[in-house]
Amino acid sequence: MTLAQIGKFGRTRRQLSAFSRAVDDVGNRILFYIKAIAEIPGAVTRHPGETLRLVAEISMGSGALAMIGGTAAIVAFMTMSTGSTIAIQGFSSLGNIGIEALSGFLSAFINVRIAAPVIAGIALSATLGSGATAQIGAMRIAEEIDALESMAVRPVPYVVSTRIAAGMITIVPLYSLALMASFLAGRFTTVVVFGQSPGLYDHYFSTFLNPVDVAWSFVQALTIAVLVMLIHTHYGFTATGGPAGVGAAVGRGVRMSLIGVVLVVLLVSLALYGGTGNFHLSG
């Protein structure tokens, strides 16, 4: 066998080994997700105090950051900014063709179907998800998770499943706050800043605000919350390499969860609105 053949064989072997490790990693990740979701009912019943503590910490924050750093404040601020931006751009663009009266339609249509789910998912990833990765990663490198196992406490239900359950519990009021913030910001910008008639704005807003779209928007938000928590808890649970490794795990978790958020919104939008759009505009 020549040196070129030996080198080619070595490269092929390394590529196959890397592919095998990637497949193993995907399989281990899926098994972790299934186990974490399956353990949610038992985790809530066995550790109700921990679940309630996580609900309070996730929604309102803790310590000095409780007033400005909680997930509720971040989600509300980001969706409020998005609602205002949609109102500004919508009023200006529609005004160019003389139909600025339909600004309320844009707020009811875009916020519910696209903007609010995406922005809420980004906020959840940046606050709820990254915090979970950092906390669990710190427990891992400090050997606290190993200590739980030595005390006959299963770490996945206590550390992971309780956080997923807390995220599922808090997402409904958090997303309700997000939608209300985007709606109010859009109305304030259009009516107060641009001077449109409140009755005109409310008429088109209520006409095109479909309750079915709102319900599906909540389904998207719940799916995004579960996905974000699964991704971030896995990265935290498998963190290695000390504090630097935890920081790297947070970065990888944020990148992966942001991709997941966009994919969820894209796939749900294609499934629900890709054909007819469930929308009719007529004079």
Rank of each mutant, 00 (worst) to 15 (best):
residue 113 R to P: 10
residue 117 P to E: 06
residue 118 V to Q: 02
residue 130 S to H: 07
residue 100 E to M: 05
residue 100 E to R: 09
residue 110 I to W: 08
residue 129 G to P: 00
residue 111 N to T: 09
residue 115 A to I: 04
residue 112 V to I: 15
residue 146 D to V: 06
residue 106 L to M: 12
residue 120 A to H: 05
residue 118 V to W: 00
residue 119 I to A: 10
residue 125 S to K: 02
residue 145 I to T: 11
residue 141 I to E: 03
residue 146 D to N: 12
residue 137 G to T: 06
residue 106 L to V: 08
residue 107 S to W: 07
residue 121 G to D: 01
residue 105 F to E: 10
residue 126 A to G: 15
residue 146 D to R: 09
residue 98 G to S: 05
residue 104 G to Q: 03
residue 120 A to C: 14
residue 129 G to E: 01
residue 146 D to Y: 08
residue 134 A to P: 03
residue 99 I to Y: 10
residue 119 I to L: 10
residue 109 F to V: 10
residue 138 A to N: 14
residue 138 A to V: 12
residue 144 E to P: 08
residue 139 M to F: 14
residue 98 G to V: 07
residue 115 A to K: 06
residue 103 S to G: 10
residue 103 S to L: 07
residue 102 L to P: 01
residue 133 T to V: 12
residue 136 I to M: 05
residue 142 A to Q: 14
residue 128 L to A: 13
residue 106 L to Y: 05
residue 122 I to C: 02
residue 118 V to D: 02
residue 135 Q to H: 13
residue 140 R to G: 01
residue 105 F to T: 11
residue 140 R to H: 04
residue 136 I to D: 00
residue 124 L to P: 07
residue 112 V to W: 00
residue 100 E to L: 01
residue 108 A to Y: 06
residue 116 A to N: 13
residue 120 A to Y: 10
residue 144 E to I: 10
residue 104 G to A: 06
residue 142 A to E: 12
residue 123 A to W: 02
residue 112 V to G: 00
residue 122 I to G: 00
residue 103 S to H: 04
residue 127 T to P: 02
residue 127 T to D: 06
residue 107 S to Y: 07
residue 125 S to Q: 09
residue 131 G to L: 11
residue 116 A to S: 15
residue 105 F to S: 08
residue 114 I to K: 11
residue 105 F to N: 09
residue 103 S to C: 10
residue 110 I to Q: 11
residue 140 R to Q: 14
residue 129 G to R: 05
residue 146 D to F: 07
residue 137 G to S: 07
residue 122 I to P: 00
residue 103 S to A: 15
residue 134 A to W: 08
residue 100 E to S: 13
residue 106 L to A: 04
residue 129 G to N: 00
residue 142 A to V: 04
residue 137 G to L: 06
residue 144 E to Q: 15
residue 135 Q to S: 15
residue 103 S to T: 15
residue 109 F to Y: 15
residue 108 A to Q: 02
residue 143 E to L: 08
residue 115 A to F: 04
residue 123 A to C: 11
residue 100 E to H: 09
residue 105 F to Q: 12
residue 116 A to Q: 04
residue 105 F to A: 12
residue 99 I to L: 09
residue 107 S to F: 08
residue 122 I to M: 11
residue 120 A to R: 01
residue 138 A to F: 14
residue 101 A to W: 11
residue 142 A to T: 15
residue 103 S to K: 03
residue 113 R to E: 03
residue 111 N to I: 08
residue 127 T to M: 10
